[in-house]
Amino acid sequence: MAGFIAQRLAKGVLVLAAIVVLNFFLIRLAPGDPAVVMAGEAGATDEIFVAQLRTKFALDQSLPGQLAAYLGSIATLDLGYSVRQQMPVATLIGERLPATLLLTGCAFLISIALGVLLGALAARRAGSLADTAITGLALLFYATPLFWVSLMAIILFSVRLEWLPSFGFETVGAGYTGLARAADIAQHLVLPALTLGLFFMAVYVRMTRASMLEVSRLDFVKTARAKGLTEGVIQRRHILRNALLPVVTLAGLQAGTLVGGAVLTETVFAWPGIGRLMYDALLQRDYNLLLGVFVVSSAMVLIFNLVTDVVYRAVDPRIEVAR
């Protein structure tokens, strides 16, 4: 197992390095650069100002030189400095990452819990009205544009009913501490986490349902039935447990992508996470910051995938450790 992990880690580092190099050039293909953006925002510029900015952003150095410098700092686990924000990239990401992890983590749990539950229910009554209703509902949440659902939820729950706050991570300036603060954050979390979670739920409903139907035809289930076990026990102990394996795999894939990907939700709900940070960095051509977000979220994906694989192996001894 240790060998397997080491091998996977080594491959992960290679993939990560390739991502850095690829994105390094990709980002620089975009029209404009951080100096142009800063100059444009200033309301007035002249040659001296632009030249100063270019020096400040190290744009006057050669591209390979910039890449070498960046790779050098990455190798020492230093994500570099955001000249625009006047702060180390690691600090900026560190400030935002917890919010994203909280949001996507909750959305993730909601989607899995609801998805598996509803999927199992649907599978059990495959072909029935309940099955149709569940799969239809899940599909509906998947097919409706996420931002539209989010805006509607805000209008209903924040504006009309005034139950939940519409934006932000917590009530600014309220000075809550301890439990009160947790409750406050939880209130702010409900809408974004729920809308995001319901969107992802569809996948798990479908997956769980398909997987359970698949497993329920396998021989050991027939054996269990022959033994006279009750249907409930069979469903829970035999079918669901085995049917969850592909769900775990998918969850691993999903968990990773959730990290980098809540841009829309973070935008609509003004959630201070790294998805929004990424988008702003892109618009401002803040190269180091944008690359930093890519590196961190990609690393997260790799780690999640590794963890899932390890879990998978622990759950299912049939899989050989060697590839």
């Binding site: 805000i154 924040s158 519409s166 934006f167 973070e266 709900f269």
Partner: peptide, 22 residues
């Protein structure tokens, strides 16, 4: 005593923040 400047990236969300008194 204090001035808080809130960062709200989406225009519709800014309008809602004003409407709801935040």
């Amino acid at each position: 005593d204090e001035v808080y400047w809130h960062v709200i990236p989406d225009a519709a969300a800014r309008a809602v923040a004003f409407e709801t008194g935040k």
